[in-house]
Design a binder for these strands. Sequence first.
DNA 1: CTGAAAGCGCTTACAG
DNA 2: CTGAAAGCGCTTACAG
Lengths: 342, 342
Amino acid sequence: MGRPRQDENRLTIQAVAKRAGVSAMTVSNVINRTGRASEATRVRVLAAIAHLGYVPNQSARRLVGSDVACVGLIYPGVESIFIDAVLAAVAVVAAEKGVQLQIRSAEHTSPEGTADIARDMVRSGVQALLLLPPYAEILGEQAEVFGLGVPTAAIATAVPLPNITTIRIDNRAASRAVTEYLIAKGRRRIAVLAGPSQHSDSVARLEGYRDALRAHDLPIDQALCVEGDFTFPTALAAAERLLALSPRPDAIVAGNDDMAAAVLWVAHQGGISLPADLSVTGFDDTMIATRVWPPLTTVRQPIREMAAEAMECLARAVRNPEQNSAPTDVVFPFTMVERHSA
Amino acid sequence: MGRPRQDENRLTIQAVAKRAGVSAMTVSNVINRTGRASEATRVRVLAAIAHLGYVPNQSARRLVGSDVACVGLIYPGVESIFIDAVLAAVAVVAAEKGVQLQIRSAEHTSPEGTADIARDMVRSGVQALLLLPPYAEILGEQAEVFGLGVPTAAIATAVPLPNITTIRIDNRAASRAVTEYLIAKGRRRIAVLAGPSQHSDSVARLEGYRDALRAHDLPIDQALCVEGDFTFPTALAAAERLLALSPRPDAIVAGNDDMAAAVLWVAHQGGISLPADLSVTGFDDTMIATRVWPPLTTVRQPIREMAAEAMECLARAVRNPEQNSAPTDVVFPFTMVERHSA
DNA sequence: CTGAAAGCGCTTACAG
DNA sequence: CTGAAAGCGCTTACAG
């Protein structure tokens, strides 16, 4: 015998069936497939469920494979407020939907290693993959990964990708908007501290910056364009290079809030007065944006909503496997938030 | 027949058993109960697991009732880097252990309402409760909640609590250490911007501050003691009050990094030079601490480790129900991180 | 030390 | 419209 753990007062589908005077599978039918039972039985079963307060056991449902059980999440293990915020949002959304998360960091991992992580997750049972930046781009290049056949979604890429459902904002337009804001404020020597060129969002933001300059007949000066990797430490060095230029830029468009904070640091150390002598903009509107001084003019992405949408897309794709092949591209509206830094 | 969903290449315990040349239950024994297999088979089975990259199906384990299925997490829905970081850490740890999280915010909820949330979670199947600040204190007062009978743990309280396993650092000692650091730096008019008095950790930190003053025969001046609610906006007003004092304090011990950032803001606006004319310290060592200027001298709590420990305690308690009645108090070491703000 | 078998709670073809 | 039966992947007494 198995284990006679029978909790006695455990509320199972059998209890409901007994009370409603039907079989367990009729109860199941009522719960899951509308229209497979007569109205009379439906009512009786529903009454029994309500009276008993029955909630189906998720583990059992998943075991038989009828529900989205588990989504694999690949994220960069780096210390980042943005990533923490996305992780927190995804965790909350997953909990709401009752999906189990399998979370794996791909920090210090080669593209092939990252593909291995994805493969392992699928083999160990995840039914869908959720990618945080920059893994959509990294895995997107390895076609074989999608031989895995599980639906995949990515939050915060900058471009639609062939095999992946992308949930994003229009990074290029957002970056252009920020740059034009600077131009409207009278800035003319506008530098850019871009994110890493492997990230499609960095590239799009850089393009948006250039769009704005071009639209206003401002020269695009390569010396005013430096690259960081989205982290504070690297941005420090990049900001120093930029602020050592002569003549000095009168504005810096940073690729994210963390890098903008680094610019602020260097400016403070150099005794540059903000925003009088230097305007700075960020990106993401993480909590850093409002804590630093002066607070950052930046772009807000609706992270919570994006996480919810990603999970929803994945759930849909898992339920309708035949449509897997048609990933979508969902573009959320962004907001430019004006504060004192620019 | 059930559903012939047989994914073919699905990696089950059977596959491992076959490769190791043993039965499925021997594999299970190796995985779960050490010492129920000969060393030789153990090695063989472990090798097979490693080679195949096998991960047990959590749904199946839970169905048979041998594992912690689901933990309910109650958190304050507030925007906070610290809370986001804790959420992210808990999500990662839960994923590692394969436990499903049920996450609920108790923002804008009365103590009774919070108890209702806990009760609902238990009825809908969570086997344990994990509390983020300040819910341990809030629920700890409502004895009936613990009639629910599920083990409960809390991260980052300041005191041991009767019915709850507490995972914390010694807030009082940490706050004292920070204050003494300020004294050693020659500060004599040290103000405190405390957190809300309902939080046991705020109270402990306030006590630690007083301990330090007393130990060095410094007067405890009520005018130098103001209260915020751990959020940036309220701290702004409190900091203004403090910095309007005359003579002005030469140091401010803030209850957390967010509030310390607010002090920095007000100081910048007032043209106070930092840290020459004013030292500021934070608490938590969130990412804010290193982004603001000057970077904060603060206290680090090992969040990741604390989250892991909490989950481990809960898992243990679920496995051994008879010992439920003996919650523990785990105190982690803290680190004081010296930066430029003090 | 090891394995055959039952069973956890549910759902899905299939038959009536 | 409804139900008996098989099976999802695992673990736990029990027997050898």
